[in-house]
Amino acid sequence: MSLTPVKKSWNHQIKEVTIGTGESAVTVGGETTLPFLHDEGDMPNPPRIALDVFDAVPDTWTEDLIEATGDEINDPVEWAQKGVEEWGVELISLNLTQHALEEDPASPEDCAKLAEEIAEATGLPMIVWGAGEEEPDRDVYPVVSQALSGQRCLLGSASEESYKTLTATCIADGHNIIGESPIDINICKQVNILVTDMGMSEDRIVVFPTNGALGYGLEYAYSILERTRLAALGGDRMMAMPIIIRAGTESQRSKEVKAKEDEFPEWGSRADRGIVWEATTATSYLQAGADIVTMNHPEAIRLIRQYIDTFMNTE
């Protein structure tokens, strides 16, 4: 008896969003199929890895991760450059945190200067995140956005409660925007509607559904991504945006990565755990439909690049 392969075809496409300009510009999205099902539709752009760079050494990182990153971690510009030169990343994901400090916060101008320096030093398209705190972020977005004006960066993130300043700023300076929702598909859709109602083009939005790491509600976030993608391929245009996932930061703060070896000897080497936890988290989300994964660990980045290359190979 012969087996007839069951193939599903879709009539709709995920929007293509281009980040950056010129030769280094990166386009994500454009799928007409669920991830990597090359027999069922097209996946014209591979998922991309963005290197998380922080404006100060993250105080939650393990010694192993700091060591793997190297001395460059002390200078965000050098850190980003190392990402390009040694780890081959195609996007920089700059995390601004210092403007939200209670004591001696960085000024919006400091933040803008740093973002500009990194953009210039790496020549790569930039993703820039605020600290996730409404007030300090609201002061910083316009200044950073203007400093990077015309570079078609990806700035985030806009939420249901707070999207107006960032949306207006991104429209004015020609950037793309990240629409954030708290693992809630209904709010994800609502944010996209609110942002487009302000005049943002549908092909300038990347959605961040928020995500946990392996062991921290990954299955739930996975199902949200899957459902988002199914709705989009089925014709829901307000869901048809590329998806960004924070694979690195979420994994690196998990107990399984941070616990010392003498606490849980059966868990094995902590240095190894930091790599596999992040890589496993990233592969799961890539299979659920993530178009951009932001990552931390150089070795996990290498593994994920290999993974993407393997799954994009249609020969």
Partner: peptide, 16 residues
């Protein structure tokens, strides 16, 4: 259709 508070306008936008 996926619920959002603006589900009526979202549907119409999707059909445009």
């Amino acid at each position: 259709q996926i619920y959002s508070d603006s589900f009526l306008s979202a549907y119409r936008a999707s059909k445009r």
